[in-house]
């Protein structure tokens, strides 16, 4: 037998438990998928509806986009699972650094 390098997040859980978990997972994915389609339709509607001003539409669809990203990360890319603490840490740090940069550029350079 070859020796394996140990990796973190390698849970040896039994099959029955995993099956149940997967079914639950599937249900969540279908629900979020439907929600995401719905949100996309809302975004299109907001843009298409002529009476809303740009000052409402742009922040509104940006908000919807953020919600979509969260759905994507947590339900489709399994970030809610155990063993994803490191990716989460790095993702959020990256978001933070990016946000500080954008904030500084908006206020210091271009404002």
């Amino acid at each position: 037998m070859a020796n394996q390098q140990p990796t973190s997040g390698n849970p040896r859980v039994d099959i029955a438990y995993r099956k149940k978990k997967n079914a639950e997972e599937m249900r969540h994915q279908v629900i979020t998928f439907a929600l995401m389609i719905f949100l996309t339709l809302v975004a299109f509607a907001a843009v298409g509806y002529a009476d809303f001003s740009g000052w409402f539409v742009v922040p509104f669809i940006l908000l919807l986009a953020i919600v979509q990203v969260i759905f994507q990360l947590y339900y489709f890319m399994h970030m809610s699972h155990k063993g994803h603490e490191n990716p989460q840490l790095f993702l959020f740090t990256g978001v933070l650094v990016g946000a500080v940069t954008i904030l500084a550029f908006m206020t210091v350079i271009w404002w």
Binding site: Q5, P6, T7, S8, N86, F90
Partner: peptide, 11 residues
């Protein structure tokens, strides 16, 4: 290096 330190530490 990041991946190494996260994943390859000895028992």
């Amino acid at each position: 290096f990041l991946v190494t330190i996260i994943n390859m530490r000895a028992p």
